[in-house]
Amino acid sequence: MATVLVIGSTGKVGRVVVEEVLQGGHTVKAQTRNARRARRWLPEGAEIVEASPVDAEALRPLVADVDAVILTHGTDHDGRDGATFYDVVRAVVDALGDSATHISLMTTMSASHSAGDELSKYPWVEWKRRAERFLRASGRPYTIVRPGWFDYQGPADRQIDLRQGDLVTGQPGVDRRHIAQVLLEGTLNPSGARRTVEIFSKAGDPVTDFEALFAATRADEEGVIDGVLDTNNVPLASEPQRVQDDLARLGK
């Protein structure tokens, strides 16, 4: 059984991740800024740990004995805390140091799109791309999950649909529990490592073989900061200087 730290545990997806970890018989540490508030949202059995998610020193004791970290930290769609999302990922990577702990990161579909794309109007999308790049550059095991539109799935959409290339447009739906399952199973199955996937829900039977689900996708290339099938990627020189400096520190 695994021990999993969930960053963003009281969010709309984070709470479902905590439930999935517990239902799988694993141990969960649920990070929050406010333990009192978290106790109202989280199920019994979750160990609630209070720490700032952007403080690597505060996170270091929390990650010392975990097998995986799942990040579901959200952003406001007005972009105010998009940079904070990036800082959370950077703090977790720094806190983990040289360990081989797996990170599963929830971002968004369209995260890879170029700065000239229409979605570049939304800073939170840009920062999620930058966080993805930082995580890939870190050299540690990871699964990056880009969800579609929460709760837009139909009643028959019980099967997880993984895609790659960041090519889906419109409002394809995804069940939050499917997101939680892929974030968790990415840490538990060998083929989940170094994957960047978009996730949606479609009609069909629920997935039971997650190793086969991930094995049907392509792993990201070693040493490359973008998803394996992403196209029209933003040139690194177009990223903010502090992002370029962070990637240079990681040897990219």
Rank of each mutant, 00 (worst) to 15 (best):
Q159G: 07
E221Q: 15
A115L: 15
Q241F: 11
D94Q: 14
A193Y: 11
H26W: 10
T187R: 02
A111I: 05
V69C: 03
D209E: 11
Q164L: 13
V49G: 01
L167H: 13
R36T: 15
V243I: 11
F214Y: 13
R242L: 07
W41T: 11
E185K: 07
V197I: 13
W124Q: 03
V21H: 01
T217V: 11
P147Q: 10
E118Q: 12
V6F: 06
D117T: 00
G82C: 04
P147D: 04
R133V: 07
I103Q: 04
V4G: 01
F150Q: 08
R40Y: 03
E221K: 15
K12M: 10
P155C: 13
L167C: 08
K252P: 10
V88N: 01
S104A: 13
P43A: 10
Q244W: 09
G223Q: 10
M109T: 01
P172E: 06
A35T: 05
S104N: 06
E211K: 09
L213F: 07
K121Y: 10
S201T: 00
D117M: 06
R36D: 13
R176L: 10
R163S: 14
A180D: 06
V145H: 00
A64E: 15
R60D: 10
R36M: 12
D161Q: 08
H26Y: 12
S99C: 08
H102I: 00
I144R: 01
T72V: 07
P141H: 04
I199L: 15
A95V: 03
G186P: 04
E47H: 14
L105A: 00
A2G: 07
G251L: 07
Q181P: 00
V13R: 01
L188H: 09
T169H: 14
G116R: 12
I160G: 04
M106C: 09
P206A: 11
P155K: 13
S52A: 11
E198I: 08
V13Y: 02
T72E: 04
A212E: 13
A248L: 12
S104W: 04
A156G: 12
D98L: 13
R33A: 04
H102R: 01
L119T: 15
V168T: 12
P155A: 15
G165Q: 11
D67I: 09
V89W: 02
L5Q: 01
V125H: 05
F150C: 09
F210I: 07
I103L: 11
A248I: 05
R15Y: 02
S9W: 04
G139Y: 06
S104H: 02
G79S: 02
Q164G: 10
D151A: 14
A51R: 00
E126Y: 10
V174I: 14
K29P: 04
Q171W: 14
A68K: 00
R177K: 15
A219Y: 09
D205C: 02
A46M: 08
R60V: 14
P172H: 07
K12N: 14
G8E: 01
L184P: 02
E126T: 05
P141Q: 05
A35M: 03
S104G: 07
K121P: 08
P53F: 00
T27I: 12
V16H: 01
P123F: 09
H113L: 15
